[in-house]
Design a protein around this nucleic acid. Sequence first.
DNA 1: ACTTTCATTTAGACAGAATCTAAAACTAGA
DNA 2: TCTAGTTTTAGATTCTGTCTAAATGAAAGT
Lengths: 143, 143
Amino acid sequence: MAKLHTKTVQAMVVSHGLKMTPQRRAIVEFLQSAIAHPTADEVLNAVNRKFPMTSRATVYNTLNWLKGEGMVREVYEGGFVRYDPNTSDHHHFVCRHCGKVEDIECSSISALKICTLPGNPQIEGYEVTVRGLCANCRKKKKS
Amino acid sequence: MAKLHTKTVQAMVVSHGLKMTPQRRAIVEFLQSAIAHPTADEVLNAVNRKFPMTSRATVYNTLNWLKGEGMVREVYEGGFVRYDPNTSDHHHFVCRHCGKVEDIECSSISALKICTLPGNPQIEGYEVTVRGLCANCRKKKKS
DNA sequence: ACTTTCATTTAGACAGAATCTAAAACTAGA
DNA sequence: TCTAGTTTTAGATTCTGTCTAAATGAAAGT
């Protein structure tokens, strides 16, 4: 599964009869370069550094569209909605102390065996949130 | 681990030098009887049916206190914060069609083996969100 | 049962996040 | 270049959640 890519977005935009704009491009590019999981506000600030007049509405429209197309994931942790540009199958680690959200490769976790669930729903996937103390906070606590 | 229980809450309240009020009781009772995972607003509406003057602040205060005491869990799905009165260790199933959130017993899922994560953080627990089509939506799609 | 104390409730103000609107600007294709 | 139709923008609006100060009410002692 591909990570968020400008070309992919461009193609997606065109195939939907939409238009590629500098703002959309800037949003996508920021998301690509983001190491962490930015909030909508962080995206807005970042894009504003490039296009000082970008409005909140544009950022939300674009994020929601990307979400709808499955090109970003929404992650809610510590009372904030964050956007995750990594759409490849993966899980999350959340630090209970600093609140940081880190990606976990699928391969770091054993596959889940899900037995029959009540009602027998159709299972399409799953994601795991691991909680604990991140390396940094762990070190700080010790010293 | 116990589910939310009026007696437990009563004891907890007293042991903290707090006071048991009809509003708190109504909130707890509604959470107990809730099959689904109500939003703060749904709690407010439900409690207002019994005590028409209950204010938003009271509901949030109580929910936050219960959360702080570990007597309810916060769950975020479909853009909404929900409250889960089931504090026993369990996971969630989310229907991609109707958005319903259902509890999954721990025993329905095989234990996870988490290999060494980058940075070697201290792992304290994990929760799983299974996604798919619930029994109801599955039936409707077929017909 | 009465009083006192102090937590709690209330309504409404407030703050922040997200959505909506209508007019202006722009993209992309002809 | 021109045009049609999408997108952007600023600001208004809505919604969630928090805060405040005044009024209320629970619980313990009398």
